[in-house]
Write a protein that binds this DNA or RNA. Sequence first.
DNA 1: GCCGTTTTCGGCCCGACTGTTTTCAGTCG
Length: 580
Amino acid sequence: MVSNSEISSRLLELAGLTALADGSTNSFRARAYQAAARAVEELAEPASQMSQTALTALRGIGKSTAAKIFELEGTGRIEKLEKLRREFPPDFVEMTRVPGLGPKKALLLRDRLGATSVDDLKRAIAAETLRDVPGLGPKTEQNLFRAIERLGIGGKERRTPIIDAMRLAHEITAALSEVEGVERAEHMGSLRRFRDTIGDLGVIVAASGEHQAVADRFVSLPLVEETVAFGARKSVVLVTSGMQVDLRIVEPAQFGAAALYFTGSKAHNIRLRQLAADCGWLLNEYGLMDAGTQGVIAAVTEEDVYAALGLDWISPEIREDWGEIEAAAAGALPELIQEDHLRGDLHVHTDWSGDGRGTLTATVAAAQERGYEYLAITDHAEDLAINGLSRERMLEQREALAGLEGSMMTVLHGAELNIGRKGTVDYDPGFLAGFGWGVASVHSLFDMPAAAQTERLITAMFDPAVNAIGHLSGRRIGRRPGIEFDVDAVLTAAAESRCAIEINCHLDRLDATAEVLRLARDRDVLFTIATDAHDARELANTRWGTRHARRGWVERDRVVNTWPKRRFLEWVEEKRGSKR
DNA sequence: GCCGTTTTCGGCCCGACTGTTTTCAGTCG
């Protein structure tokens, strides 16, 4: 059976090649394939097993695409895709990935110079023959040369892990905030939507009066390596890490419209502009306006613009045209989780285990300062050879914790257990029963087959000592892919076992992934939002975990550490008293 | 290629910047 992700990537490839065939990345057919790919990605059931009627009922999939899905399922290929692949071989497609080289120029180079690969392109640039092609000149030659040199092949697809992008964004917005006349400087784009990886970093600045000083400051920041574009409203630079940063400067009265526009996603924006057009209005980065009189209808805040379009304000993390617009129109948006809903942290390390840095006292005090009602200390258990605590040390720690009692906050003595090859965890049942909380995580054997990983996770979930599964996939964004497992089976087991799935707050992890969280929407799955803090300051990482959870459409009541202490502790005990 | 209480044909979001042009096409987001 062909999986939805396979179908989706075939459709995306079809979109890319169709864009080449049509000479535009915005060709309607290319966009239609993109929309179809998105529709398939969002499906909970396998598209290849659905009826034609059910498939074509989905927005974005018509008869033609449905037929291609069945063709792929039946024959393992899509004839139209095969034909396009022959017309545009991989080397040529790779050439079109060079920034600044779109379908039109690429086809022109192929027709005029016979260039069909990046190597051909390099040779043409070196021989200075590119400038002889009508419509191209020495400047284009130079820009393409620099693009290849600087970004390499695939420059357009390069993505930066969110942790690096966030750091960069804060540095840039802090510097721009200091420029006189600047009222606000904020990151937008996929970083504000909290995607795991970021393509280009988008920043908007609201400034009254002179805009030039802002642009000047921007392109002269120390980390700027190269200025790609420099204009009154818009500038683009490449920074030392190779990331592209786009700056837009707007009037303060236009900030809402600009924020909406530059946060995207593109698909979300297109839907909004269609809604505007239906009312005879025009929506762009400067505001929502009457198409005829140009009179401004809304622009100051995002809420204003959404309200004028008849929509509730939509949280940036879910602006992907995943159904949020319909929900907002119906007043049926879910109550998404927010940071101030949290009443405790359930995955926290101290210096008792090797990689923690805060003392027990300092960690507990920091949690108390955050106003928490409960906290679980979860240092590594003994099977983690490097950092794990022996039984003796665990008992000592429990005693030390008892000495810290006396506050309103309940401190649970827990452990971060290691999920073994077969799904068993550290210690023995008797010793495990002594803990008040258990979070179990995969720390080893990342490359076992998916079926074995699935079994392993499910076994751990049903263990009475396991209240939650930590960082479900074990991924490190941009560095380690994480284990493969059957999402459907694991979510079903989570609902059945009443074991929570952790939403790990570390920017490096953000695990379980948003895709898994979204797929859990239709089931009775519980979550924790936990920091996995190794330092008291990291308790503040809840700000990341809650944004990630919102991207997964996680509602407040699904998150056990939003519950009042009594309800929370009852659930903990119920699970710990369960039988396999 | 998709879609439809104006439609089964004719629409399909909108604008900035660059380079190459002498008013606009290409690329990008």
